[in-house]
Each structure stands twice: as structure tokens, then as C-alpha cells.
Deep mutational scan, measured.
Amino acid sequence: MDVFMKGLSKAKEGVVAAAEKTKQGVAEAAGKTKEGVLYVGSKTKEGVVHGVATVAEKTKEQVTNVGGAVVTGVTAVAQKTVEGAGSIAAATGFVKKDQLGKNEEGAPQEGILEDMPVDPDNEAYEMPSEEGYQDYEPEA
């Protein structure tokens, strides 16, 4: 019985440690998101679009440190934060509304985080759909 109880105690310690790591990862992701939003706020009209992409990228980098179902929630929060940063930029006159959601080359930025393969159960990952990809044929 002692062996059984000791095993359960060790398992509990492992769960607590994993929860603490997840909590730490979420806190880091939130900190990076805040950094990115402050970065966007300090940019001029020309830099705002690039700044919004930076927020998304920093958040995406930190999301990889967070495991399990938390990833889905962090990704949703990050996307809403990026959308909010863009709205703030438009409201303050840093950028025109028609410039939001495009990178410096004018290509749409939507789907940055949505296409990231995420499995809350950590069982399997699927690649994003290939609808947006084109076949590449090298020139002879």
C-alpha cells in the first residue's frame, strides 16, 4: 500500500510541476504579447503594419512553449490582441483601416495563427491545408 501511495504522490508532483510550467509559459506569452502591443503603439504610420505582424510573430513563438489545451486559448487571445492593436492603430490615425491585415508588401496577414497546427491532446499534428499553395516548377 505504501508503494501505491508513494507512486500516487510522485504522479501528483509531476502534474503540479507540469501545471506550473504551463502557467509560466502562458505568463511569458502574455508578456511578449504586451511587449508587441507597446511596440505597435510606438510606431509611426509606416511601421504600424509591420508592428502588428511582430506582435503576432512574438506571440506565436511563445505559444510553442505552452502545451496542451492552453495553446488553443493563448492563440485565440493573441489573435484578438493583434486585431485590437490594429483597431487602436486605425482609431489613433497611425494607419488607414484599409491597410490593416496586410503586410508591407500588401499581402493579407489573416491566418497567421489560424494555420498553425495545434492539437490540445498532444496526440497528432496535421499540416495546414494546401489550398493556398501553388506547385513550383523550376525553369529549365
Rank of each mutant, 00 (worst) to 15 (best):
M1H: 00
D2M: 01
D2V: 03
D2T: 08
V3W: 05
V3A: 06
F4C: 05
F4Q: 00
M5K: 07
M5R: 02
M5S: 04
K6L: 05
K6R: 06
K6Y: 08
K6P: 00
G7V: 09
G7L: 15
G7R: 09
L8Y: 06
L8I: 01
L8M: 03
S9V: 02
S9H: 04
S9T: 04
K10L: 01
A11F: 06
A11V: 15
A11E: 00
A11M: 15
A11G: 02
A11Q: 00
K12E: 01
K12S: 05
K12A: 08
E13Q: 13
E13V: 07
E13T: 10
E13N: 11
E13W: 04
G14R: 12
G14Q: 09
V15N: 00
V15I: 13
V15G: 04
A17T: 01
A17W: 15
A17D: 07
A17R: 09
A17I: 07
A18W: 15
A19L: 15
A19D: 01
K21C: 05
K21T: 05
T22H: 03
T22K: 00
T22G: 07
T22W: 04
T22L: 05
T22I: 00
K23D: 00
K23H: 06
Q24Y: 12
Q24E: 09
G25R: 12
G25Y: 14
G25H: 10
V26N: 00
V26D: 00
V26K: 00
V26Q: 00
A27E: 01
A27D: 02
E28Q: 03
E28F: 10
E28C: 06
A29K: 06
A29W: 09
A30E: 00
A30H: 00
G31M: 00
G31F: 14
G31T: 10
K32R: 08
K32A: 06
K32Y: 15
T33L: 13
K34R: 13
K34W: 02
K34N: 03
K34Y: 13
E35I: 15
G36C: 05
G36S: 10
G36V: 13
V37H: 00
V37F: 06
V37A: 08
L38F: 09
L38R: 11
Y39D: 14
V40Q: 00
V40W: 00
V40S: 00
G41M: 14
G41C: 04
G41T: 07
G41P: 00
G41K: 13
S42A: 11
S42R: 05
S42V: 08
K43N: 00
K43V: 10
K43T: 03
K43R: 11
T44R: 01
T44G: 11
K45D: 00
E46R: 01
E46T: 09
G47F: 15
V48M: 12
V48W: 04
V48S: 02
H50N: 10
H50L: 11
H50G: 04
G51D: 02
G51V: 07
G51I: 15
G51K: 08
V52H: 01
A53Q: 02
A53R: 15
T54Q: 12
V55G: 01
V55C: 06
V55A: 03
A56E: 01
A56S: 06
E57C: 08
E57I: 02
K58P: 00
T59A: 12
T59P: 01
T59N: 02
T59E: 01
K60T: 05
K60L: 08
K60A: 13
E61C: 10
E61N: 02
Q62R: 14
Q62F: 10
Q62Y: 03
Q62L: 05
Q62I: 15
V63L: 13
T64I: 07
T64P: 04
T64S: 06
T64Y: 15
T64D: 03
N65E: 08
V66I: 12
V66Y: 14
V66K: 07
V66L: 10
V66T: 03
G67P: 04
G67I: 12
G67H: 14
G68S: 07
G68C: 14
A69H: 08
A69R: 13
A69L: 02
A69Q: 10
V70E: 04
V70F: 05
V70P: 01
V71H: 03
V71W: 14
V71T: 01
V71L: 09
V71S: 03
T72E: 15
T72A: 12
T72F: 00
G73H: 10
G73F: 15
G73I: 10
G73N: 10
G73L: 12
T75R: 05
T75K: 14
T75V: 14
T75E: 05
A76M: 04
A76W: 03
A76N: 01
A76P: 02
V77P: 02
V77H: 03
A78R: 06
A78C: 03
A78N: 02
Q79V: 04
Q79I: 08
K80I: 06
K80H: 09
K80G: 05
K80N: 14
T81V: 14
T81P: 02
T81M: 13
V82A: 03
G84S: 09
G84K: 07
G84I: 09
G84Q: 14
A85C: 10
A85Y: 14
A85L: 10
A85I: 12
G86W: 08
G86T: 08
G86M: 02
S87P: 01
S87H: 15
I88T: 05
I88C: 10
A90Y: 14
A90F: 05
A91F: 15
A91W: 10
T92N: 03
T92H: 03
G93V: 06
G93R: 04
G93E: 05
G93T: 01
G93I: 11
F94M: 08
V95T: 05
V95C: 10
K96M: 12
K96H: 13
K97V: 10
K97Q: 04
K97Y: 11
K97I: 11
K97H: 04
D98F: 02
Q99K: 12
L100P: 01
L100R: 01
L100A: 04
L100K: 05
G101V: 11
G101A: 11
N103M: 09
N103R: 07
N103V: 12
N103Q: 10
N103S: 06
E104M: 04
E104A: 08
E104C: 02
E104F: 09
E104K: 00
E105R: 05
E105S: 10
E105K: 08
G106E: 12
G106W: 11
A107V: 04
A107T: 07
P108W: 03
P108T: 06
P108H: 07
P108Q: 14
Q109K: 07
E110W: 12
G111E: 14
I112P: 05
I112R: 09
I112H: 12
I112M: 09
I112C: 12
L113C: 13
E114S: 14
E114C: 06
E114G: 11
D115I: 04
D115S: 10
D115N: 05
D115L: 07
D115P: 10
M116S: 09
M116H: 14
P117Y: 06
P117N: 13
V118S: 08
V118E: 04
V118I: 08
D119W: 10
D119V: 10
D119E: 08
D119L: 09
P120W: 06
P120E: 05
D121Y: 15
D121M: 04
D121N: 13
N122G: 15
N122W: 02
N122H: 05
N122Q: 08
E123F: 04
E123H: 06
E123M: 09
A124G: 12
A124L: 11
A124E: 13
A124W: 10
A124Y: 06
A124I: 08
Y125V: 13
Y125L: 09
Y125M: 02
E126P: 11
E126K: 09
M127Q: 08
M127F: 08
P128S: 01
P128A: 09
P128L: 04
P128Q: 06
S129D: 05
S129T: 11
S129Y: 07
S129P: 08
E131K: 05
E131F: 06
G132P: 05
Y133W: 13
Y133M: 13
Y133H: 02
Y133A: 14
Y133E: 14
Q134F: 03
D135I: 09
D135T: 11
D135Y: 14
D135V: 06
D135Q: 15
D135N: 12
D135S: 11
D135M: 14
Y136H: 11
Y136W: 10
Y136T: 05
Y136N: 05
E137C: 08
E137R: 07
E137S: 06
E137L: 11
P138R: 09
P138H: 06
P138M: 12
P138Q: 13
E139D: 07
E139R: 05
A140Y: 08
